[in-house]
């Protein structure tokens, strides 16, 4: 249960950073926190009390003793995609800084069209 609660808390902190913070890097950190929280949530959904990792070995050959592999596989994808999204965001931030000389989103107002 604590896993759920802390995952939700992490998500909440992330959303808070996303809205309240004015600094672009803080905003990206907020995004990253949301992603981490969601990954934690998904993996903890798949957890089953008293079962082991879904990897067969010479000791563990019984499939009924394993936790759910599907959330883990999904989270694997999610982490990689999160990292690539982050790299892209970081590149944007650096470019914005080059152009405007600031990280404060209140001063970067060219999103209007």
């Amino acid at each position: 249960m604590i896993f759920y609660i802390s995952a939700l808390l992490i998500i909440g902190i992330g959303i808070y950073a996303l809205i309240i913070k004015k600094n672009l890097i803080k905003i990206i950190i907020g995004l990253d926190l949301i992603e981490t929280g969601i990954n934690l949530l998904i993996v903890s959904i798949g957890y089953v009390n008293g079962k082991t990792a879904p990897i067969f070995s010479k000791d563990v050959m019984n499939a009924s003793l394993m936790v759910d592999p599907v959330p883990q596989a999904l989270t694997l994808t999610s982490i990689v995609i999160g990292a690539s999204e982050l790299a892209l965001a970081a590149a944007f931030v650096v470019l914005l800084y080059r152009k405007y000389g600031t990280l404060d989103i209140r001063k970067i107002r060219s999103l209007r069209w």
Binding site: L18, I19, K22, I27, I105, I108, L111, R112, W113
Partner: peptide
Amino acid sequence: IRRIYTGNLETYVSLGI
């Protein structure tokens, strides 16, 4: 309709939230 988009990132995020 375009007036919603003030050009401020905060506005967009708050809209989403």
